[in-house]
Design a protein around this nucleic acid. Sequence first.
DNA 1: AGCAAAAGTTTCCTATAGGAAATTTTTGTT
DNA 2: AACAAAAATTTCCTATAGGAAACTTTTGCT
Lengths: 212, 212
Amino acid sequence: MADEPHFLKEQDRKALEVERRSETEATLEPLQLGQRVRAIRLSQNLTLEEASKRTGLARSTLSKIENEQISPTFTAVTKLVHGLGIDIPQLFAQPRSGAKPAGRRDITRSGEGKPHPTPTYEHELLNTSLTQKKMVPFRTRVHTRTFDEFTDWIRHDGEEFLYVLSGSLLFYTEFYEPVELFEGDSAYYDCTMGHALVSTSEVDAEVLWVTA
Amino acid sequence: MADEPHFLKEQDRKALEVERRSETEATLEPLQLGQRVRAIRLSQNLTLEEASKRTGLARSTLSKIENEQISPTFTAVTKLVHGLGIDIPQLFAQPRSGAKPAGRRDITRSGEGKPHPTPTYEHELLNTSLTQKKMVPFRTRVHTRTFDEFTDWIRHDGEEFLYVLSGSLLFYTEFYEPVELFEGDSAYYDCTMGHALVSTSEVDAEVLWVTA
DNA sequence: AGCAAAAGTTTCCTATAGGAAATTTTTGTT
DNA sequence: AACAAAAATTTCCTATAGGAAACTTTTGCT
């Protein structure tokens, strides 16, 4: 990390050092939980005493956890998580074993996606310069105004996440009653179940879609 | 409960019952780790003996964990996670047993997601009542104003799609120059590459994130 | 039903986690 | 540099997790 916070003590600085180094090494098992906890605590400028009050764990216990002298019980871990507001996946994330750098990145500017019009929808495919993606993201303008415009359910493999960017629309699905969705609403569903969207707002509704 | 798998013992049947009932609650507070582990093991049709071989934990230990007689240490939890191929969200979400359901649907109204604050971001998890999802969608408010606030890169498995809902921000990645993103811009990247977001607009930037 | 095998639970013991207080290290001030 | 205050670590003790084996319950035959 470019610019080091300068409120750190020497030992902590060292801790961050080690933490950083271990990232690249990708050691398999040890799973440096302690170093992560310490890094998180320091990032919030907490002393062990303060962290102790927040988590309900003894000062000494926290110290031992951070120094990897003990393996905390699951209840202790949840106390940590709640007391310090830690992101759980990050705690469990294993340092990568298979040296697969995989540092791909693709940015698409607003409106610069790849257009893909259909009779009912107007899709704009996003991040298309990256191939072999697990997910397919696209932004869609919904032209349809009545359900009749669909000759049949849309149906395909996988799962789909839908987020309403603007406008309002009716979300039809094969096995459920239609639901009206408004800006900020989201839906997640199996795409093998028939589905269709119809704008209900003055202007065409716009949605963000991600398929996997 | 029309057609229950018939290879289950009475007690297991009960376990699944409880499991299923608690699905609607979807809180991570009481955290009935044991019941989840049992449900996951049963969904893979494993006996304690087999699970023991896979995880390296004693049969008796597994039994105690499942019956919530002990709180496993962190090392034990990681053994579980790896041995049974549990992914972390699954531990905190609810698994399903038998055949894969194909007609699922879950709608989250604007602002009604499940809050998950961290020091740097304020996440709102979306569509959390559906479990076993391929993708994890969430809406995030970016508090950070300087890169220093991160003690370390954020890094985890999988791929991530990012869409800027409002405001502007700097998108830092380990192997690239930082890029400023504005409303409507999107990015797709490998999460094993370190990444971090910093708001550059007056108000906190808001992004939509989908991980898979 | 009655039996044998398989699966799950409990017991008992050892290793280790967690807490209170003593000790050591670090930090800031003069 | 020397000291006092603050923070972190270590010690020592009790509570509890983890494993091996005994025990109990469930399953699947005939």
